[in-house]
Amino acid sequence: MLIAFNKPMNTLSQFTDEGKWHGLSRFGLPSGVYAAGRLDRDSEGLLLLTDDGKLQARITSPRTKTPKTYFAMVEGTPSADALAALCAGITLKDGPTAPAEVAQVDAPDWLWPRDPPVRHRKTVPDAWLRLTITEGRNRQVRRMCAHVGLPVLRLIRWSVAGHALVDLAPGDWRAV
């Protein structure tokens, strides 16, 4: 069984609550499924869950180079140099990243309101990037964007391994 779940902001990618943060247990997911990968508490979007250990390993293994696409609202205006650096790969403290597919895009038309809302500053512009990576390091997209001077204000995972978030509201799930 494979489940596509739209993880809301401030929800953990585990079933148990931890402190003031809620886990996945409150969303009526089938028993016996586990997250195939993680999505940070402050990130939103597609989280795949499965009861198949081999499938979970295949989705999460760095060797399979599973593509993951994100939409990132960043603070600032991306320069051509910043976008080129993200595309070429960034050297982070834990080593160089693989090249990424990156494009500046309009705000997604499927975007839902975030709770809490993103704080907007009148004097600082923001922009949206669509990034596809084939790694899954801890907070990788956030760290890559920060490295080129574009702090992430909102991060939404759109797709993993060919499965996309299409027509799933935050907190909703479906079998795929």
Rank of each mutant, 00 (worst) to 15 (best):
G149V: 04
D167V: 02
G23I: 00
V124Q: 08
V166Y: 03
S79R: 05
K20A: 05
A4Q: 04
A82N: 05
I133N: 08
D17Q: 03
A82F: 06
R41V: 13
W112V: 01
L165H: 04
A72W: 08
D172A: 15
L153H: 02
T69H: 05
P116E: 10
V152K: 07
A57W: 00
E18N: 06
I59P: 09
D109R: 06
T69V: 07
V160K: 01
A100W: 08
A82H: 04
P78T: 04
L2R: 11
T77D: 12
D81W: 00
F71W: 08
N6F: 14
D51R: 02
N6R: 13
P8S: 10
M9P: 00
Q56C: 05
N138A: 11
P78F: 04
E101R: 02
G149I: 04
P151F: 09
Q104L: 05
V102Q: 02
A161F: 09
R58T: 10
R174V: 06
G45L: 05
K68N: 07
A98P: 03
A169Q: 07
L92N: 09
C87Q: 15
L129E: 05
R41W: 00
P99T: 12
F15L: 03
P117I: 10
R121A: 05
L39T: 06
T134G: 08
R142Q: 13
A175E: 14
D94S: 10
A4M: 04
L165Y: 01
A107T: 13
A35C: 12
R157G: 02
P62S: 14
G23L: 00
M9Y: 11
G53Q: 04
P30M: 14
A146Y: 10
P67S: 10
P170T: 10
L92M: 08
V148I: 09
A103Y: 11
P62N: 07
R121E: 12
Q56E: 09
G28R: 15
K54A: 08
K93D: 15
W128E: 01
P67C: 10
T132G: 09
D167T: 03
F15K: 01
T134K: 14
P78W: 10
S61V: 00
Q14G: 08
A127G: 06
A127H: 04
I3M: 11
G162E: 03
T69M: 02
G37M: 08
R139C: 13
P125Q: 01
P30T: 15
K122Q: 13
R137K: 15
V105T: 14
R38N: 10
A4T: 05
R26C: 07
D109V: 12
V141T: 10
F5N: 01
V105G: 13
L86Q: 01
Y34L: 12
R157F: 04
A57N: 00
K93F: 15
V141M: 14
L39M: 01
